[in-house]
Each structure stands twice: as C-alpha cells, then as structure tokens.
Amino acid sequence: MEAVVVNALSKTYGQGATRAVDNVSFAVSKGELFGLIGPDGAGKTSIFRMLTTVLLPDGGSAAVDGLDIVKDYKEIRNRVGYMPGKFSLYPDLSIEENLNFFATVFNTTVEENYDLIKDIYVQIEPFKKRRAGKLSGGMKQKLALCCALIHKPSVLFLDEPTTGVDPVSRKEFWEMLRRLKEQNITIVVSTPYMDEATLCDRIALIQNGKILSIDTPANVVASYPDTLYALRSEPMFALLQAVEHYPHTRNSYAFGEYMHASFTDGVGEDEVKNYLREQGIAAVEMKKTTPTIEDCFINKLKN
C-alpha cells in the first residue's frame, strides 16, 4: 500500500492570487524516502501543511496511510510525525523537558520508543539539562527530530530540516534519515539544497506550485536531454559571458569551479573552442560531464 497518495492537490491564498500549490499529484510508497526539492516559495510548506491536516486544500485530495486528509484528520494526527520549517521547540524548556512533553502529548513515553531515537538522542543527551533556546542549529535539529519521532509515526514529514544548517550538520542529518529508513518509517522531506536530492529514493522537483518531474535521482539525471560540458578558464567571468553570447548555446551558467553549458545539436568541443579562441579566450579546459540534479532543475526551469 502507498503511504501517501496526492491527487491533483491545489491551494490558493487570498482571492485569486498566486496558486501556491497547483494541481500536484504524487505517491509515496511505504518505507520510502521521498524528497520535495525546490526553492523557497515553491509550495513545499503548503503541501506539507495539507498532508499533516493543518491546512485545507482548495482542490484535489490526498490520503496519508489510507486516511483522507480532510475527513480523517483526527486519525492522521495520531499517526504522523511532523517537523515544521521553523524548528518548533520550546526555547525555555530543556532538551529533556521538550522530549518528555511531546511524548506525553502523543500518548506515549520516552522509554517506550527509546530504541527509535536512541542513535540521535545519545548525541544530545550530555546536554539534556540545557534549554533548547541555547542549543546550536544542529543540536536543535536533532532534538526536533527526536520529538517528531517519539511516538513512532508511520509517516514522518520533515519540512526543510536542513535550511540554514552548515554542511557538516546537514550531512549528519541525512545519515540519521538513512538509518530511520531502515526502521521502515516512510519519510517525506523537503529541501532547497539540490545536492541533497541524491540522498532520497525518489524526488519531485517543484517550482511555483507545480511539479516539474518525479523520479529516482538517477532517472532524473539520465533523462537530461543534452550533452553537458564543463568549462574552465581564467578569468571565469569573461568565459561565462562569452559562452552566454555564443549563438549555439542552449544553456550556460556557472557551476562551482567550472561553468556548465549545453549546445545545439552538432556543436561539439572543437566548435566551441574555436569560437572562444576568436573571442580571445584561449586556455580553456573543456570536458563532458554528468549532469547533477541541479543541472536538471535549471534545464526544467529554463524550458
């Protein structure tokens, strides 16, 4: 059975204003780690709020664990775990108090499901008397995850858990998610960081309330239509501008140390290098490269 089924879900704020969520459909299987990948304002939070029953959709339907998000909201609230975008903890309560509080609210005790949070909790346990407001971003994030997990939810919704967190903490967080997945918990997670997409089983790329594509990260990458090149030269800015003005360029943009570019059919390395030489850029390093999720996202956005 599918853990989450979303069917043509829509949400509009205000009167006839922008559609925050526009006819979105997807399904998440039991035990899957599903990622909603998109920038701020793409509609990720609205989708999460509708699935966790705190927001009513304007159109379409959705079910979590086979339960309707409008009719069966009470039962869904018993079953799911939710970590909203802002880490929702009580800053004036300690780690321990926060955890005990959420355990009681969900009709359980910390001891009952301790095995589930043990791996994460031991990392913050030494500071259990410290108030949540005095914790670092990474520690708050771990505590919030523990609180969302404490009642052993069947589906875990994590809305941008890694935003504003440094790369080291982000990496640790994703490792925790992988271990949770092994415990057979379905996880729906959203992130604006494209590099995190590869850590999901399947992803939905989302922008302006619409889903651009849904697939496994590998398939999303494999479906990239063009040959992608990585180019490099000094100074980079001149190269970027030259490639951008090349008539045969389909897409070109900076990408880390290199720039990425794709060209119209029939245009290869030699043609590009010749053009660049004419533009006075001689020492160019150019090679074919495998697209990343970010390349795919940019490609979808531009077309």
Partner: peptide, 13 residues
C-alpha cells in the same frame, strides 16, 4: 508564532 502550535495541532492532543 514559534510554530509549536503547528506541531501540537498535528498531535492527538
């Protein structure tokens, strides 16, 4: 404001 209400809403309480 802090978003804790959101979590509490998504609970059986």
């Amino acid at each position: 404001e802090t978003g804790t209400m959101e979590v509490l809403l998504v609970s059986p309480f």
